[in-house]
Write a protein that binds this DNA or RNA. Structure first.
Lengths: 206, 206
DNA sequence: TTTGACAGGTCAACAGCGTTTACATATACC
DNA sequence: GGTATATGTAAACGCTGTTGACCTGTCAAA
């Protein structure tokens, strides 16, 4: 607020619309990270940002808009889907295990814990489809691609869920490599074709 | 309200504490079923039951208490875990597909759609552990039992999640038998032992 | 019959939430 | 200077779940 800090090409005004928006966003991020989403009220954010409550709704539509804005930057699976198809399930498995162990950005962790809030649901609802299932579907290709993507997403989301409701201590206690292997196997199994009536076939990935 | 009607062995009073509680519960069930949990307020329930709002908190502690009470009767997996161990995963798979298609009681369906509400979360949070993971753990037995149970729960919960956020239309469009087979295979894979460093072993169920 | 205790029910309020409306103020342009 | 327009403010709205103080009818004891 008193360090105008012009770092060169990047315009970072300390007053005016953009500065206020940035200040609100920064406060929201900090508070959400430390307190979770549901526990932080609009008035708390405004107070922390030294700003009137009404501005949150003016600039972001609603409290939920803050969340959308904060999440717009990073994907649900940042950079995981793109890459070598042969190792996709491995990457996802590693990512899942990582999240299971509470790794990731502090904000991600906080929001994982706050999952369940209706606002968060609504925001994620769109993001899971557009940033996870849709890209996976496109990436996999083919007719049943969306079904495969949905199954994989189910496994990934289910793990988050178990961590949320139960802590997943038993899973976290497992050897990390073995758990990753198992998750990868589960994800691979999600990718098997649905065409053959044989329930117990060879791994027909792709 | 004016028919004290003692029907003999079964006490079903229309006045007094128990009758009022029953009336509130019935109204809550009906409204939750038709409108979802979050959309129904305490005052709506009270009004529908012809009762004062304060009685809800007097008799059930809070709105959440209504939910707990309504769910106390039926399990998360009613009667699925008990039974022939050899067909456990089959039963769970069939149950999952059934829920995916929106079958089950009307209340279950409504609450599935309302999942995400913090109150519902808190109630489910306990129930998923005590009515799903714990019994599964006990049922499976052994040292890694809880890890296996957690993995299975993840798959089951993930499916609910995908249905909630994306609709799971692609999965529901699949041949039901094939989807059930696939889910069963996934659940079976959850049960494989973690002990062997070999990632691709025989089905060491149990 | 009168008295008192008490369970059952009502009413109005509390504190909080997200959001909106009407208003004040500073900025920038003609 | 005058005026439009962006920016910020204060106060309220309507809603939520929840609570404490107050009636009221029933029943038992004196």
């Amino acid at each position: 607020m008193d360090h105008p800090e012009e770092t060169g090409g990047d315009p970072g005004p300390t007053r005016g619309r953009e500065a206020t928006k940035a200040r609100i966003l920064a406060s929201a991020k900090e508070l959400f990270t430390n307190e979770g989403y549901g526990s932080v009220s609009s008035r708390m954010i405004a107070s922390h940002a030294g700003v009137n409550v009404a501005l949150i709704n003016r600039y972001f539509g609603a409290k939920r808009g803050l969340l959308t804005e904060l999440l717009r930057a990073d994907g649900v699976f940042p950079g995981l889907i793109e890459g070598d198809p042969a190792t996709l399930t491995r990457r996802l498995a590693e990512h899942a295990v990582s999240r299971l162990h509470g790794e990731g950005t502090a904000l991600q962790r906080a929001l994982d814990d706050s999952a369940g809030d209706p606002d968060l649901q609504k925001v994620y609802q769109g993001r899971i489809t557009t940033a996870m299932i849709d890209p996976l579907t496109a990436y996999l290709g083919g007719d049943d691609a969306r079904a495969h993507a949905s199954l994989m997403s189910a496994v990934m989301l289910g793990l988050t869920r178990v961590r949320l409701v139960e802590g997943a201590t038993a899973l976290r206690a497992l050897d990390r490599e073995r758990l990753t292997d198992r998750l990868q196997a589960l994800l691979d199994l999600c990718l098997d074709g649905f065409g053959e009536p044989e329930d117990d076939g060879e791994p027909g990935r792709g």
